[in-house]
Design a binder for these strands. Structure first.
Lengths: 246, 246
DNA sequence: ACGGTTGCTTGATTTAGGTCAACAGAAAAA
DNA sequence: TTTTTCTGTTGACCTAAATCAAGCAACCGT
């Protein structure tokens, strides 16, 4: 086994060191990109050593130099307000890209921490910006990724503003289920990468309410809960509860 | 007076038909852009006839072709969920750019409606995308604008998730005050462009709670309220109430 | 001058979810 | 082994904001 810090990260047991081999490339790179251009992107990417649970990738105020693609594990982003109150602003799973805040004023706008052992691909922004000038489909891709982030943030505003506890929790479950199945993992059985604390913080609820909501959904036969293991029994009901408003 | 629909829009009483003359260009275009490039941008922009209160600029699902800069008046964006429930996702004032959702899947992701008589500059996206490949500072600018939108959406998530009614209302007032003063308007006295309904919808509160909160802030001497006219008496207190959490 | 509609305010009551408190299982430490 | 810590669950109670209801002023079209 190699000791190269950029190559020991793969969780699948084999070294995966190039974008063209990566089974996540359909998520973080444009599909319609020819191999030559993928290699040009590949050349500027730095692959990380494993990042342990609780370890930060960057913090608010750090100089902005790179965006990051999650390769394995799971990551959360959060803000701290003036009083030190934490607000979780997002959960990021393999194939997803984070760090698009930060471009605005050349300073990272949030804190990023690993929720379990994770690996990321670091994408130096100035380099990818140059490439984007030369590869139109890449420029378009980044506009699209940022646009999707904006759309999903707006959905989140809707969730926080209009939905009750059941609606919020089920919305998160549906989102996670979709994102797992995009990676060809089970949409029915999933292991939550985050604590009840983080769920509550993200959804604007207390841990007690999150816990009670899980229990209620289980009692109604919609899901089975065993700690962080969730099984979706009744997807239809789950989706209908999803719209529950306050 | 001309009847050219693209040139009757100016509210200042004179025709203003070029970006280089526009007193908002510092807000929607990069500062470090030379005149030649500003003219190239100017050439692709379509200036709108006046859009009346309640008139839509586009709706969710419409084909995405352009982003828009607000030139005068005020605009709100909102989502409709499956049950037809409205969620206001943003208020846009002169110099601000909207429509960055929509890039992701080539379809507009929200509804956009004018809150009063407004004019906008329509920026055809494919044209500005081409220009962005040729003018690096312009590409950077759009990345920055989208990044700022993401950051402010995250702040909004914090507001909705963590703040009580007073915190939410004052946060909106502070934001509006800042955005008015950016345009060299009074930061102390402002006229709200939106109804109590829209404020409540945006902030995840009922109109009654919004109304009561305004009344309470007035009783505490922090602001004066006369319908949509707001005067900020005690900016310091306003900012401290701003952090009020639930 | 006329109802009718719309936007906003205020009061009385209800309720979802917050707060406080106790406890249990799992994992880590001693 | 016991102890401690951490995470999650459940119960009792309380409170901020929702809901329900009434009323008022401004503005509309007739």
């Amino acid at each position: 086994m190699t000791t190269d810090p950029y190559n020991i990260a793969c969780t699948h047991g084999f070294i995966q060191s190039s974008c063209s081999d990566c089974n996540l490339k359909g998520l973080c790179l444009p599909i319609a990109m020819d191999l030559k251009d993928i290699d040009r992107v590949n050349d500027i990417i730095k692959r990380s050593r494993p990042i342990h649970a609780g370890e930060h990738i960057y913090r608010t105020g750090d100089g902005f130099t790179s965006i990051f693609a999650v390769r394995s594990g799971s990551i959360k982003t959060y803000l701290l307000d003036d009083d030190g109150v934490e607000q979780v602003t997002g959960f990021y799973l393999p194939g997803e890209i984070l760090g698009f805040d930060g471009i605005g004023n050349n300073t990272h706008g949030c804190n990023v921490v690993s929720m379990e052992t994770s690996t990321v691909c670091e994408i130096p922004f100035e380099r990818i910006e140059e490439l984007s000038l030369q590869i139109p489909v890449l420029q378009r891709h980044f506009f699209q990724l940022m646009s999707q982030q904006i759309e999903s943030d707006h959905q989140m505003m809707m969730t926080l503003s209009k939905k009750n506890a059941e609606g919020r929790v089920t919305t998160l479950l549906v989102s996670l289920s979709n994102r797992f199945s995009r990676r060809n993992l089970s949409a029915k059985s999933l292991r939550l990468p985050m604590s009840r604390m983080d769920i509550g913080n993200f959804l604007g609820l207390t841990i007690e309410t999150v816990s009670r909501t899980f229990s209620r959904l289980q009692k109604e036969g919609i899901i089975n809960v065993d700690g962080r293991e969730i099984h979706i029994n009744d997807n239809e009901k789950l989706h209908s509860v999803c719209h529950a408003s306050k």
